[in-house]
Design a protein around this nucleic acid. Structure first.
Lengths: 229, 229
DNA sequence: TTTGCATGAGGTGTTGACACTTTGCTTGCG
DNA sequence: CGCAAGCAAAGTGTCAACACCTCATGCAAA
């Protein structure tokens, strides 16, 4: 629920938090994820800098960070473009997730505290209610799913995994969800799989947790492949 | 054998390849991996810029890329420091590798061409000879091991995996190998495990390939944990 | 002696300007 | 009419200078 606040740039107040490059990075990242900057569109440094009332230097540093997140691609002397998510790349991302989140679940089964697991259970219960009431269908359910996976990764207590999935690649996944936002017929099934995973965590069974998580991500991928064909 | 050339900065010739930031990045990366810039040491932008005869702007972009590779850590208004590899973080990196390279091996079992697999076999045969002759013990064997894993990842044909392991995190692994360079008693065992993996690839058995690779990385990790204790 | 604040130096964040590269169009020649 | 060389505009790479922040040093007051 309380996702680390995205700072709005270009508002009345000059957002007195973080460095200028930080705020620029957040603003651009949001713009790309939401689709305001279309996939594959070219980024003109002078124009963007003018639009945001910022020098090119700061903008270039922000773009460098976006490049590290794989949200933009840059070629020397040719400039930067917003990344394009092809079908193949989406599938590759899901293969990456299968491996990484599977390992995260395995580690989480041993590293999460009882309190964290209980909190996860509460979150799931809430999701269940939302699904029953069929309210906030699209957005909230997807956000909920993201929250769930987010917490598992955090629960692994592995800083490499956390940095990679919750900071570096997190926004790329959000971009996929926002822009490819296919209505999830898989919603109820995904909810069940989340509960299986919760059981594995409660049993402190690493092997089972990894198995369930991998199967879960793989199902999502298969669903995606089918929808793309 | 033919690792993409590291460009030497500060030589007679002005290295007429790539942008200045690129060359700076390569030079700093090498310096960090080799230990010339000690772990945890602070990076003074003015001094480094002067030493390399470069403006601070270019240097800052190079540092931003190093940060993306996790080779340096930066805090606002406090500057950048070379990353410190603690024992815990090393273990976390190996857990990451187990997941990622396991998946890479799985995919490679289906995606690699027969020619690529044959070339891998030739590489392994060469390693075997080197081990027999006990020559070039430390460096070449470690480099050989890195080459082997490098090729498996490339063989997965998954651009996400390749970018992550062969570009983003590759140098962090090299840094560990160079600086923690423990003599590998495990050398012969690792060689055998590599051959098991080759067999799995030849059989086009994804399940087995992933299993062997994960076991291989896990053994390395256990060996590391033991050596650290 | 110790605590607190002022001050200065060093360092980082940010900016505007300059130089080179790319690109699309124009112009002149075959 | 087609094509190559050249030119102009836009864009990226690089730089030096300015503004703000942090930290350490020293001085003054309790």
């Amino acid at each position: 629920m309380t996702e680390p606040g995205l700072i709005e740039l270009d508002r009345g107040v000059p957002s007195p938090v973080g460095t200028l490059t930080d705020r620029l990075f957040d603003a651009l990242q949001r713009a790309i994820v939401e689709g305001e900057m279309p996939q594959g569109s070219k980024i003109s440094e002078p124009e963007l800098a003018r639009r945001h009332g910022v020098s090119r230097g700061s903008l270039r540093e922000a773009i460098a960070r976006l490049e590290a997140c794989k949200l933009v691609e840059r070629k020397p002397n040719l400039g930067a473009r917003v990344v394009e998510l092809s079908a193949e790349q989406l599938i590759e991302i899901f293969q990456l997730r299968e491996a990484l989140e599977g390992m995260a679940a395995r580690l989480a089964a041993e590293a999460m505290s009882d309190a964290e697991i209980d909190a996860l259970g509460a979150l799931l219960a809430q999701h269940g209610q939302q699904i029953e009431q069929e309210q906030g269908q699209a957005y909230f359910q997807k956000q909920g799913d993201l929250d769930f996976h987010f917490r598992i990764v955090q629960g692994s207590k592995n800083r490499q995994l956390i940095a990679l999935l919750c900071e570096d690649r997190y926004h790329l996944l959000r971009m996929y969800r926002v822009q490819f936002g296919m209505r999830s017929q898989r919603c109820r099934q995904a909810f069940e799989e989340h509960q299986y995973l919760l059981s594995a965590l409660r049993s402190r069974d690493p092997e089972m947790a990894e198995l369930v998580m991998r199967q879960h991500v793989r199902s999502s991928r298969r669903n995606l492949e089918q929808a793309l064909a």
